[in-house]
Amino acid sequence: MLIIYVGMASGVGACLRLVCMDVFSHSSFFSKLYFPVVTFLINIVGSLLMGFIFYYLPDTTTNTLISVGVIGGFTTLSTFNDEMILLWKYHKLTCLLYGFLTYLVGLIVVLVMVR
């Protein structure tokens, strides 16, 4: 039963991700940039919240639903990789910067939460 609940929470997370992407694609400033700011921010904020919930909040069912469900569905590795490969064709430097920054900042952000 918990699997279905986690799945529904992931659906909510995926919808939140789509909201972020829609909001940023409407903004004239961010849609001009080559750097995919939306996916970057989504992944970093998601990782930060994941670390916070794991290290600071008690291990309850609700927290599992939020961390594994909502945040797990909110962050995405597949879109990130797809964007990297698209960028590699036209902006190799931006691609390398994007990959490096996402992995580095993502790890640092969780490391900060460790106690």
Binding site: A14, M50, L107, V109
Partner: peptide
């Protein structure tokens, strides 16, 4: 299918948490 199914299947946050 792409953003919903696969996007919520893969996860970046759990990857970072596991690594740390």
């Amino acid at each position: 299918l792409s953003a919903g199914l696969i996007g919520s299947f893969t996860t970046f946050s759990t990857f970072n948490l596991d690594a740390i």
